[in-house]
Design a binder for these strands. Structure first.
Ligand SMILES: [Mn+2]
Ligand SMILES: [Mn+2]
Ligand SMILES: [Zn+2]
Ligand SMILES: [Zn+2]
Lengths: 153, 153
DNA sequence: ATATCAATTCAGAACGATTCTAAAATCTAC
DNA sequence: GTAGATTTTAGAATCGTTCTGAATTGATAT
Protein backbone atom coordinates (compact mmCIF):
# COMPACT_ATOMS: atom_id res chain seq x y z
CA UNK A 1 0.00 0.00 0.00
CA UNK A 2 1.52 3.25 -1.15
CA UNK A 3 5.23 2.47 -1.54
CA UNK A 4 6.07 4.47 -4.63
CA UNK A 5 9.36 5.95 -5.68
CA UNK A 6 12.97 5.00 -5.20
CA UNK A 7 14.34 8.21 -3.73
CA UNK A 8 13.43 6.68 -0.38
CA UNK A 9 16.14 4.10 -0.15
CA UNK A 10 16.74 3.92 3.60
CA UNK A 11 15.92 7.33 5.04
CA UNK A 12 13.03 5.99 7.10
CA UNK A 13 15.55 4.26 9.32
CA UNK A 14 16.76 7.42 10.99
CA UNK A 15 13.30 8.63 11.91
CA UNK A 16 12.22 5.16 12.89
CA UNK A 17 15.10 4.94 15.34
CA UNK A 18 14.26 8.27 16.90
CA UNK A 19 10.66 7.25 17.38
CA UNK A 20 11.67 3.98 18.94
CA UNK A 21 14.11 5.70 21.29
CA UNK A 22 11.33 8.06 22.31
CA UNK A 23 8.98 5.17 22.95
CA UNK A 24 6.59 6.33 20.23
CA UNK A 25 5.00 3.79 17.93
CA UNK A 26 6.16 4.28 14.37
CA UNK A 27 2.82 4.95 12.78
CA UNK A 28 2.46 6.01 9.17
CA UNK A 29 1.71 9.58 10.27
CA UNK A 30 4.56 9.90 12.73
CA UNK A 31 7.03 8.49 10.25
CA UNK A 32 5.90 10.83 7.50
CA UNK A 33 5.91 13.91 9.73
CA UNK A 34 9.20 12.84 11.26
CA UNK A 35 10.72 12.68 7.81
CA UNK A 36 9.42 16.12 6.89
CA UNK A 37 10.80 17.51 10.12
CA UNK A 38 14.08 15.71 10.62
CA UNK A 39 15.45 14.75 7.25
CA UNK A 40 16.75 18.12 6.11
CA UNK A 41 18.28 21.11 7.78
CA UNK A 42 17.02 22.30 11.13
CA UNK A 43 13.78 24.17 10.86
CA UNK A 44 11.06 26.14 12.58
CA UNK A 45 7.47 25.30 11.71
CA UNK A 46 3.98 26.07 12.84
CA UNK A 47 1.28 23.43 12.93
CA UNK A 48 -0.48 24.93 9.94
CA UNK A 49 2.76 25.07 7.94
CA UNK A 50 3.51 21.44 8.62
CA UNK A 51 -0.06 20.52 7.74
CA UNK A 52 0.20 22.31 4.41
CA UNK A 53 3.55 20.70 3.74
CA UNK A 54 2.14 17.26 4.43
CA UNK A 55 -0.73 17.94 2.07
CA UNK A 56 1.71 18.95 -0.66
CA UNK A 57 3.66 15.78 -0.09
CA UNK A 58 0.38 13.88 -0.52
CA UNK A 59 0.54 12.70 3.06
CA UNK A 60 -2.93 12.53 4.50
CA UNK A 61 -2.84 13.62 8.14
CA UNK A 62 -5.48 15.43 10.10
CA UNK A 63 -4.70 18.72 11.80
CA UNK A 64 -5.50 17.10 15.13
CA UNK A 65 -2.76 14.58 14.50
CA UNK A 66 -0.34 17.33 13.50
CA UNK A 67 -0.91 18.94 16.88
CA UNK A 68 -0.75 15.66 18.75
CA UNK A 69 2.46 14.73 17.01
CA UNK A 70 4.15 18.08 17.52
CA UNK A 71 3.36 17.94 21.22
CA UNK A 72 4.44 14.32 21.57
CA UNK A 73 7.70 15.06 19.76
CA UNK A 74 8.21 18.05 22.02
CA UNK A 75 7.55 16.02 25.16
CA UNK A 76 10.02 13.44 23.89
CA UNK A 77 12.69 16.09 23.38
CA UNK A 78 12.71 15.74 19.60
CA UNK A 79 11.33 19.26 19.22
CA UNK A 80 11.28 22.44 21.24
CA UNK A 81 8.54 25.04 21.32
CA UNK A 82 9.51 28.64 20.64
CA UNK A 83 7.28 31.51 21.73
CA UNK A 84 7.77 34.62 19.65
CA UNK A 85 4.28 35.57 18.66
CA UNK A 86 1.17 35.56 20.78
CA UNK A 87 -1.28 33.50 18.83
CA UNK A 88 1.06 31.14 16.99
CA UNK A 89 3.33 28.37 18.22
CA UNK A 90 6.58 27.53 16.48
CA UNK A 91 8.27 24.17 16.80
CA UNK A 92 12.02 23.97 16.41
CA UNK A 93 13.91 20.89 15.28
CA UNK A 94 17.04 22.30 16.88
CA UNK A 95 16.75 21.24 20.49
CA UNK A 96 20.16 22.50 21.58
CA UNK A 97 20.38 25.65 23.63
CA UNK A 98 20.27 28.53 21.22
CA UNK A 99 18.52 31.80 20.51
CA UNK A 100 16.69 33.45 17.63
CA UNK A 101 16.38 36.29 15.23
CA UNK A 102 12.70 36.81 14.50
CA UNK A 103 11.48 38.68 11.48
CA UNK A 104 8.04 39.89 12.49
CA UNK A 105 7.10 40.78 8.95
CA UNK A 106 7.73 37.35 7.43
CA UNK A 107 7.38 35.26 10.56
CA UNK A 108 10.78 33.67 9.89
CA UNK A 109 13.03 32.46 12.67
CA UNK A 110 16.80 32.17 12.35
CA UNK A 111 19.02 30.43 14.84
CA UNK A 112 21.70 32.17 16.85
CA UNK A 113 24.13 29.61 18.17
CA UNK A 114 24.34 29.68 21.91
CA UNK A 115 28.12 30.20 21.76
CA UNK A 116 27.70 33.33 19.68
CA UNK A 117 25.71 35.21 22.25
CA UNK A 118 26.14 35.52 25.95
CA UNK A 119 23.74 36.60 28.63
CA UNK A 120 25.62 37.70 31.69
CA UNK A 121 24.95 39.19 35.10
CA UNK A 122 21.58 37.51 35.29
CA UNK A 123 20.18 38.45 38.67
CA UNK A 124 19.12 35.53 40.88
CA UNK A 125 15.58 34.34 40.27
CA UNK A 126 12.89 35.12 42.85
CA UNK A 127 13.13 33.12 46.08
CA UNK A 128 12.17 29.48 45.73
CA UNK A 129 12.41 29.62 41.96
CA UNK A 130 14.98 28.23 39.59
CA UNK A 131 15.68 29.07 36.01
CA UNK A 132 14.24 26.55 33.60
CA UNK A 133 15.21 28.28 30.38
CA UNK A 134 16.55 31.55 29.02
CA UNK A 135 15.12 32.68 25.71
CA UNK A 136 16.62 35.53 23.74
CA UNK A 137 14.53 36.82 20.86
CA UNK A 138 16.15 39.40 18.64
CA UNK A 139 13.37 41.03 16.66
CA UNK A 140 14.49 42.37 13.32
CA UNK A 141 12.91 44.56 10.68
CA UNK A 142 13.84 45.84 7.26
CA UNK A 143 16.68 48.30 7.69
CA UNK A 144 15.55 51.83 8.50
CA UNK A 145 11.80 51.68 9.05
CA UNK A 146 11.35 54.40 6.42
CA UNK A 147 13.66 57.39 6.60
CA UNK A 148 11.10 59.52 8.35
CA UNK A 149 11.94 61.47 11.44
CA UNK A 150 15.48 62.00 10.21
CA UNK A 151 15.91 65.00 12.47
CA UNK A 152 16.56 62.77 15.47
CA UNK A 153 13.91 64.10 17.84
CA UNK B 1 -21.65 61.23 36.47
CA UNK B 2 -20.61 58.91 39.30
CA UNK B 3 -18.00 60.99 41.04
CA UNK B 4 -17.87 59.38 44.45
CA UNK B 5 -15.01 59.45 46.92
CA UNK B 6 -12.33 61.93 47.80
CA UNK B 7 -9.26 59.77 47.33
CA UNK B 8 -9.29 61.09 43.80
CA UNK B 9 -8.11 64.62 44.47
CA UNK B 10 -6.05 65.40 41.36
CA UNK B 11 -4.70 62.14 40.04
CA UNK B 12 -6.62 62.45 36.79
CA UNK B 13 -4.25 65.18 35.74
CA UNK B 14 -1.30 62.90 35.17
CA UNK B 15 -3.20 60.48 32.94
CA UNK B 16 -4.93 63.32 31.19
CA UNK B 17 -1.60 64.83 30.26
CA UNK B 18 -0.29 61.56 28.93
CA UNK B 19 -3.35 61.10 26.75
CA UNK B 20 -3.08 64.62 25.42
CA UNK B 21 0.61 64.16 24.64
CA UNK B 22 -0.26 60.99 22.79
CA UNK B 23 -2.97 62.75 20.83
CA UNK B 24 -5.69 60.53 22.29
CA UNK B 25 -8.99 62.06 23.27
CA UNK B 26 -9.50 61.86 27.01
CA UNK B 27 -12.64 59.79 27.03
CA UNK B 28 -14.16 58.41 30.20
CA UNK B 29 -12.90 54.91 29.35
CA UNK B 30 -9.35 55.91 28.46
CA UNK B 31 -9.05 58.01 31.59
CA UNK B 32 -10.31 55.23 33.82
CA UNK B 33 -8.11 52.58 32.24
CA UNK B 34 -5.17 54.95 32.22
CA UNK B 35 -5.57 55.45 35.94
CA UNK B 36 -5.73 51.73 36.58
CA UNK B 37 -2.62 51.22 34.52
CA UNK B 38 -0.46 54.20 35.32
CA UNK B 39 -1.24 55.37 38.81
CA UNK B 40 0.55 52.71 40.82
CA UNK B 41 3.69 50.69 40.39
CA UNK B 42 4.64 49.36 36.99
CA UNK B 43 2.66 46.33 36.00
CA UNK B 44 2.01 43.58 33.49
CA UNK B 45 -1.60 42.86 32.56
CA UNK B 46 -3.60 40.88 30.08
CA UNK B 47 -6.76 42.26 28.50
CA UNK B 48 -8.96 39.97 30.56
CA UNK B 49 -7.20 40.96 33.78
CA UNK B 50 -7.66 44.64 33.09
CA UNK B 51 -11.29 44.05 32.18
CA UNK B 52 -11.90 42.24 35.46
CA UNK B 53 -10.13 44.99 37.35
CA UNK B 54 -12.25 47.63 35.70
CA UNK B 55 -15.38 45.71 36.61
CA UNK B 56 -14.26 45.56 40.24
CA UNK B 57 -13.64 49.28 40.23
CA UNK B 58 -17.19 49.68 38.91
CA UNK B 59 -15.90 51.08 35.65
CA UNK B 60 -18.11 49.98 32.83
CA UNK B 61 -15.97 49.28 29.74
CA UNK B 62 -16.52 46.71 27.06
CA UNK B 63 -13.89 44.13 26.31
CA UNK B 64 -13.63 45.53 22.78
CA UNK B 65 -12.65 48.87 24.26
CA UNK B 66 -10.12 47.23 26.53
CA UNK B 67 -8.44 45.77 23.47
CA UNK B 68 -8.72 48.99 21.49
CA UNK B 69 -7.27 50.99 24.36
CA UNK B 70 -4.40 48.60 25.05
CA UNK B 71 -3.41 48.71 21.39
CA UNK B 72 -3.75 52.48 21.13
CA UNK B 73 -1.68 52.96 24.28
CA UNK B 74 0.92 50.59 22.87
CA UNK B 75 1.02 52.42 19.54
CA UNK B 76 1.44 55.66 21.47
CA UNK B 77 4.37 54.27 23.43
CA UNK B 78 2.53 54.31 26.74
CA UNK B 79 2.60 50.51 26.90
CA UNK B 80 4.70 47.74 25.47
CA UNK B 81 3.54 44.30 24.48
CA UNK B 82 5.41 41.33 25.94
CA UNK B 83 5.22 37.94 24.29
CA UNK B 84 5.90 35.10 26.69
CA UNK B 85 3.02 32.78 26.11
CA UNK B 86 1.48 31.74 22.82
CA UNK B 87 -2.17 32.51 23.24
CA UNK B 88 -2.06 35.40 25.66
CA UNK B 89 -0.76 38.94 25.29
CA UNK B 90 0.72 40.85 28.19
CA UNK B 91 0.94 44.62 28.27
CA UNK B 92 3.69 46.26 30.26
CA UNK B 93 3.50 49.74 31.75
CA UNK B 94 7.29 49.80 31.90
CA UNK B 95 8.30 50.95 28.45
CA UNK B 96 12.00 51.28 29.18
CA UNK B 97 14.35 48.63 27.83
CA UNK B 98 14.26 45.77 30.25
CA UNK B 99 13.80 42.02 30.45
CA UNK B 100 11.66 39.53 32.35
CA UNK B 101 11.44 36.59 34.63
CA UNK B 102 8.37 34.63 33.68
CA UNK B 103 6.74 32.15 36.02
CA UNK B 104 4.91 29.79 33.69
CA UNK B 105 2.89 28.29 36.52
CA UNK B 106 1.38 31.53 37.78
CA UNK B 107 1.70 33.59 34.63
CA UNK B 108 3.50 36.33 36.58
CA UNK B 109 6.09 38.57 35.00
CA UNK B 110 8.86 40.27 36.95
CA UNK B 111 11.09 42.96 35.55
CA UNK B 112 14.83 42.60 35.18
CA UNK B 113 16.39 46.03 34.83
CA UNK B 114 18.31 46.38 31.62
CA UNK B 115 21.45 47.36 33.51
CA UNK B 116 21.36 44.16 35.51
CA UNK B 117 21.66 41.88 32.53
CA UNK B 118 23.81 42.13 29.47
CA UNK B 119 23.53 40.46 26.13
CA UNK B 120 26.85 40.50 24.37
CA UNK B 121 28.44 39.22 21.19
CA UNK B 122 25.18 39.45 19.35
CA UNK B 123 25.93 38.42 15.79
CA UNK B 124 24.93 40.89 13.09
CA UNK B 125 21.34 40.56 11.91
CA UNK B 126 20.67 39.05 8.47
CA UNK B 127 21.52 41.32 5.55
CA UNK B 128 19.19 44.24 5.08
CA UNK B 129 17.72 43.82 8.53
CA UNK B 130 18.17 45.84 11.66
CA UNK B 131 17.45 44.97 15.24
CA UNK B 132 14.24 46.47 16.48
CA UNK B 133 14.24 44.91 19.92
CA UNK B 134 15.98 42.32 22.04
CA UNK B 135 13.78 40.38 24.43
CA UNK B 136 15.20 38.18 27.13
CA UNK B 137 12.71 35.90 28.86
CA UNK B 138 14.00 33.98 31.83
CA UNK B 139 11.51 31.22 32.51
CA UNK B 140 11.42 30.12 36.11
CA UNK B 141 9.82 27.25 37.95
CA UNK B 142 9.52 26.15 41.57
CA UNK B 143 12.94 25.00 42.71
CA UNK B 144 13.69 21.35 41.89
CA UNK B 145 10.71 20.05 39.90
CA UNK B 146 10.12 17.34 42.54
CA UNK B 147 13.02 15.20 43.68
CA UNK B 148 11.93 12.28 41.55
CA UNK B 149 14.31 10.41 39.32
CA UNK B 150 17.09 10.81 41.84
CA UNK B 151 18.85 7.78 40.44
CA UNK B 152 19.82 9.66 37.32
CA UNK B 153 18.17 7.42 34.73
C1' DA C 1 -3.16 -15.72 9.46
C1' DT C 2 -6.61 -14.32 13.14
C1' DA C 3 -8.03 -12.52 17.35
C1' DT C 4 -7.36 -9.30 20.84
C1' DC C 5 -6.72 -4.99 22.98
C1' DA C 6 -4.30 -0.83 23.61
C1' DA C 7 -2.65 3.08 21.19
C1' DT C 8 -3.56 6.22 17.60
C1' DT C 9 -6.05 8.87 14.24
C1' DC C 10 -9.62 11.86 12.83
C1' DA C 11 -13.83 14.76 11.79
C1' DG C 12 -16.04 17.84 13.81
C1' DA C 13 -17.40 20.34 17.89
C1' DA C 14 -15.77 23.25 21.46
C1' DC C 15 -12.79 26.64 23.28
C1' DG C 16 -10.38 30.95 24.56
C1' DA C 17 -8.27 34.95 22.98
C1' DT C 18 -8.69 38.40 19.80
C1' DT C 19 -10.65 41.10 15.96
C1' DC C 20 -14.38 42.85 13.29
C1' DT C 21 -18.95 45.12 12.31
C1' DA C 22 -21.90 48.65 12.10
C1' DA C 23 -25.12 51.09 15.05
C1' DA C 24 -25.37 54.13 19.10
C1' DA C 25 -23.03 57.29 22.09
C1' DT C 26 -19.65 60.75 23.00
C1' DC C 27 -16.36 64.37 22.19
C1' DT C 28 -14.72 68.71 20.03
C1' DA C 29 -15.22 72.63 17.59
C1' DC C 30 -18.19 76.03 16.25
C1' DG D 1 -26.95 74.49 21.40
C1' DT D 2 -25.60 71.79 16.50
C1' DA D 3 -22.61 69.25 13.25
C1' DG D 4 -19.27 66.11 12.20
C1' DA D 5 -15.64 63.19 13.41
C1' DT D 6 -14.19 59.91 16.84
C1' DT D 7 -15.11 56.43 20.06
C1' DT D 8 -17.61 52.82 22.27
C1' DT D 9 -20.11 48.73 22.23
C1' DA D 10 -22.74 44.17 21.80
C1' DG D 11 -22.49 40.65 19.40
C1' DA D 12 -20.81 38.03 15.55
C1' DA D 13 -16.85 36.34 13.36
C1' DT D 14 -12.20 34.60 13.15
C1' DC D 15 -8.15 32.20 14.43
C1' DG D 16 -5.21 28.92 16.48
C1' DT D 17 -5.65 25.26 19.38
C1' DT D 18 -7.77 21.54 22.21
C1' DC D 19 -11.24 18.19 23.08
C1' DT D 20 -14.51 14.34 22.02
C1' DG D 21 -15.69 9.90 21.03
C1' DA D 22 -16.06 6.73 17.26
C1' DA D 23 -13.27 4.32 13.80
C1' DT D 24 -8.77 2.66 12.53
C1' DT D 25 -4.35 0.82 13.16
C1' DG D 26 -0.36 -1.44 15.47
C1' DA D 27 1.60 -4.87 18.54
C1' DT D 28 1.24 -9.07 20.54
C1' DA D 29 -0.47 -13.65 21.43
C1' DT D 30 -2.31 -17.70 19.52
MN1 LIG E 1 0.29 40.78 17.94
MN1 LIG F 1 1.54 26.19 25.30
ZN1 LIG G 1 15.90 27.56 16.49
ZN1 LIG H 1 8.22 44.53 32.36
Amino acid sequence: MGMHGMSTARPYKHVLDRLQEAGLRPTRQRLALGRLLFEGEDRHVTAEQLHAEARHARISVSLATIYNTLHQFTAAGLLREVVVDAGRSYFDTNVHEHHHFFNEETGHLLDIEETRLSVSDLPPPPAGMCISRVDVIVRVARTEPAIKAQAAE
